[in-house]
């Protein structure tokens, strides 16, 4: 493991992939491929156990997961914080004029 800024990757990749053989443990590269389904809670129970176990042992992958999950939430918060405080009043005023004026 070389650091949190790099795509986590161990030696000994499983060429079949954990999706085709969920009973086998996951390596770092496979874990990255599973993150989308992991954060959407769409892995099988067995796959989830393997992913959780891997992250307990692998700090860079845990950091990678946190950043992967955090990035869309941060974008969401960043944009919601840009909403003008008086938008609601202006919008309601505009709509009232256009629909009832």
């Amino acid at each position: 493991m070389s650091g949190s800024t790099e795509n986590p990757r161990h030696d000994g990749k499983d060429p079949e992939g954990v999706m085709s053989n969920p009973s086998r443990p996951v390596d770092c590269q496979q874990l990255v491929e599973l993150l989308g389904e992991y954060v959407d809670n769409q892995l099988t129970a067995e796959q989830r156990v393997h992913v959780d176990y891997h992250m307990e042992q692998c700090a860079p992958c845990l950091a990678f997961l946190r950043q992967y999950k955090f990035a869309p939430q941060a974008v969401r918060d960043h944009l919601l914080q840009a909403v003008p405080v008086d938008l609601e009043d202006r919008l309601l005023s505009f709509l009232k004029k256009r629909t009832r004026g």
Binding site: L79, V83, E88
Partner: peptide
């Protein structure tokens, strides 16, 4: 009309945020 305004109040922040994220202009 109050019900329509309630819908606007409920969703306006998210609608604006989605739009702002796309058009990049307030």
């Amino acid at each position: 009309y109050d019900a329509f305004e309630a819908l606007v109040r409920r969703h306006q922040r998210r609608v604006y945020a989605v739009a702002y994220g796309i058009v990049k202009n307030a």
